[in-house]
Design a protein around this nucleic acid. Structure first.
Lengths: 168, 168
DNA sequence: ATGATATCGTTCGGAGCCTAATGAAATCAA
DNA sequence: TTGATTTCATTAGGCTCCGAACGATATCAT
C-alpha cells in the first residue's frame, strides 16, 4: 500500500509530463518546478480571492491591492502607488478612475509640482478595509493551513531570496 | 555593525509598514507574508520573462504558457488546454486566435464529435520551443540562484502543499 | 530669458481575461 | 422521429493591463 505524505505535496501528473518532455535538454528541473509552482500558487490564490471575497464588493484583485497599499501607507504620489502595487502607470490611471467612481480614492494635486498627483484613500476605504482585510487574512490562513508556522517562515524566507535576486 | 544574512532574505520596508498597519487587528502575519511574497515573486518573474525573453517573439506570458502545454502534452482538446493553462475557455479562444495568426497552432475538428476542437502545435512551435525553452530555463535558474538545490526542493514542497489545500 | 531636455499623468490601440448569452452539435426521452 | 436537454466553442460586453505616443509642467544650459 502506498501511503500519502501527511501534507500531500507529491509531484503532479503535469509535472511528470513536463519532466519527460525536457529530459533530453539538460534543464534544471528544480528551478523549473520552483518557478512553475510559484505561478500555480499565485493563480489559484488570486482566483479564490476574487471569487470568494472581492467580487461581492465590485473589486478586482488589482483594485484591492491598490487599496491595500493606500491603507498601509496613506496618501501616495501616483508613481509610488503604481510601483508598490506592481502595475504600470497607465494601468493605475484606469484603476484609480474606477476606484474614484466607487468613492474609494481622491485625487489631490501636488502643492508645488503641477505634474504630480497624490492619491488618497477616503473614509469609506478605511471602513471597507477594516471589514475586508480580516476576511482576506482568513483566506490567507485557510490556503496556508497545511503548513506549520515554521514552514511558513521557511517559505517566506525563500521567496524573499528570489525577490532579492530579481531586484539586485 | 549589522551583518546581512548570506542570501539577504530580510523583511522589506513594505512588509514592516504592513505589519504596523494590521498589528491591532489580530491577524496571522505568517499567512499574510507567505501569500504576499508568493504574489510578489510571481509578478516579478512574469515581468522579467515578458520583458527579457517573450516580447521579442511577440508572445505574451499566457501565450507562452499555452504553447508550453501543447509542447509538453501534444495536441489537446480545447477544454483540456484551457484547464491546464489556467485560463477560462473563452480566454483560450482569443489566445488560440492570436497564436493561429502567428502560425503556432492549428485547429482540428474532432473526428467523431463536431462540437469539439483539437488544438495542435505546428512544426514552427516545436522549433520555437526548442530554442525558447532552454532560455526560459536559464531565466528560471537565474532567479532561483540564491537557493540551494535542497532549498528549492523545500520551496516546491511547500507550494505543492498550498496547491493541494486549494484543490482539496 | 529661452530653447532643449527630463519627468510627470493620461490617452490610445491592442491583447488578455472574465461571466453571461448564444449557437452548434450530440444525446436523451417518449 | 422529434422535441427537450446537455455539452461543447464562440461571441458580446466590460474591465484589466501593457507599451508607446502625447501633452503639460518643471528643470537645466547657455
Amino acid at each position: 500500500m502506498v501511503t500519502d505524505s501527511p501534507h500531500n505535496s507529491s509531484i503532479t501528473i503535469a509535472e511528470k509530463a513536463a519532466h519527460k518532455r525536457v529530459r533530453a535538454l539538460g534543464v534544471d528541473l528544480g528551478a523549473m518546478d520552483a518557478v512553475a509552482n510559484i505561478f500555480r500558487a499565485a493563480n489559484s490564490i488570486r482566483n479564490k480571492a476574487e471569487r470568494d471575497l472581492l467580487a461581492q464588493h465590485g473589486l478586482s484583485f488589482t483594485g484591492f491591492t491598490v487599496l491595500w497599499v493606500l491603507w498601509v501607507w496613506g496618501p501616495r504620489e501616483s508613481h509610488q502607488l503604481a510601483e508598490e502595487s506592481s502595475v504600470s502607470k497607465s494601468t493605475l490611471t484606469g484603476i484609480v478612475k474606477t476606484l474614484h467612481t466607487l468613492k474609494l480614492v481622491e485625487r489631490k494635486s501636488h502643492p508645488s509640482d503641477g505634474r504630480r498627483l497624490i492619491i488618497a484613500p477616503t473614509q469609506k476605504t478605511l471602513h471597507l478595509m477594516e471589514e475586508l482585510f480580516p476576511k482576506f487574512n482568513e483566506l490567507e490562513k485557510e490556503v496556508t493551513k497545511g503548513l506549520t508556522k515554521k514552514e511558513k517562515s521557511g517559505l517566506i524566507k525563500k521567496l524573499r531570496t528570489i525577490l532579492h535576486t530579481l531586484e539586485g
